[in-house]
Design a protein around this nucleic acid. Sequence first.
DNA 1: CAACTTCTGTGCGATTTCGCACACAAGATT
DNA 2: AATCTTGTGTGCGAAATCGCACAGAAGTTG
Lengths: 258, 258
Amino acid sequence: MSKKPKPHPQQNHFLAALDPDVQERLFPHLELVPLPLRSLMYESGRTMRHVYFPTDSIISLQYIMENGASTAILVVGNEGLLGISLLMSGQGTPSRSVVQSAGHAYRLPRVKVKEEFNRHGKLLLLMLRYTQALITQVAQTAVCNRHHSIDQQLCRWLLLSIDRLSHNQLNMTQEFIGNMLGVRREGVTQAALKLQQQGVISYSRGLIKVLDRDKLETLSCECYGVVKKETEMLLPYLPKRQVITDVAAIPVVKLPTV
Amino acid sequence: MSKKPKPHPQQNHFLAALDPDVQERLFPHLELVPLPLRSLMYESGRTMRHVYFPTDSIISLQYIMENGASTAILVVGNEGLLGISLLMSGQGTPSRSVVQSAGHAYRLPRVKVKEEFNRHGKLLLLMLRYTQALITQVAQTAVCNRHHSIDQQLCRWLLLSIDRLSHNQLNMTQEFIGNMLGVRREGVTQAALKLQQQGVISYSRGLIKVLDRDKLETLSCECYGVVKKETEMLLPYLPKRQVITDVAAIPVVKLPTV
DNA sequence: CAACTTCTGTGCGATTTCGCACACAAGATT
DNA sequence: AATCTTGTGTGCGAAATCGCACAGAAGTTG
């Protein structure tokens, strides 16, 4: 296969929504980072030096219990960014961030973002709105964990994921999904089987294809809809006033693997 | 019983931590609001015109499902404030806020807070830190809902609540706790019985007394500790530089009951 | 004090999820 | 082709929780 073209920074909606002057200040410091499946972006206790803006990748944020059990509480794709806590307090969070769908992200040094943040312009404004959408997603996860079946939660999870991609395929095993939802792998198998029998998805060895998105929505709990609606209300990144960027000139960085 | 003295604004740690000049600008607009048990502070779809700073009350924030089931995702006491979403986006959230422990709160018109917020001073700084602590609490609730027993969650809930009061008594029925945790009333009864038999709490008809706080902590899941640690790290409201305020001059407001 | 409402205790079968064990299937390795 | 690793399907008893029904206890009201 030949070399694929680099993704453009503007593919990340958050970056795209920044004012041209902000973009002009920040974009010279951009680095492109390929994100292989399952690489570890952040772990509790470590220091994060960059803020990441996914273009065609998905990062999920999970909390890990002392006994190793985990739950994903948030999915970040090209609608947002990873690392708002760096702006809010400078402190890390007691969480872990893992690449859930391989792809790329642009990143900026936390210092540069912080500088721009302190100008109290569009970046601050967008960050606040994104934070509220984030809180909604986390809160709805809490509710969902309490009240809904594995079947419903699987639907929600699949929808949240494909919403953040330009295709309908997901690279994740049932074991992985189990970790994300905080349930047994067998439980995911049962739920996935039902979906496959209904022709909603098909899958094999870690590759899931969504065949009937509409049906998936009807089978999902209301949680997905609530989050989606709130997100769309809070993040209407409408007029993309783009700064022309020479993508080729942006350096590419390799992340260390776990 | 004779009239009790008004609580002081500085009893709210957030207000107390503001710089004197900020306090001087804001405090003239303060109103004192008595918060009767179970009064409704906010409901999804309504407009909030004030930001509330509890002094000796607790407000809990819950999400309601279409079928009426609910889960509390956040507890707000004198360490924080209700209404950050007004600052973050101006939009409401799909949640409901209820007074969980009667008492008082000071409130400020959203416009005044927003004005001060836009000065990008201490208020903004504190608000960001508080928001991060809030996210941690919500996220930990999500994890807890997934992985821990009713017994453990009851302990967590009791601890979060009494931490925000100056005494060790809680006014809530088991039915109410059930609504907050999103579990059946009978489940709460079972869990509460165990605690009472171990001498950790005593209760009768909606009045719970915490007798052995230490034991309660050991019986709780790790979620409580994580939230507490993060909160203390993020909100070290250290030097209280107080503006002398004439409490008597602050107007008192009555909230409409549900 | 009688009637009523509210809160708490208890029992039981249904349901969901868990934990574990194991079989099988599809790629990957040699 | 033979073997190994990884991912998926299945069966079972155990545990937690649910939904419901009802009884009794503690206040409240008339």
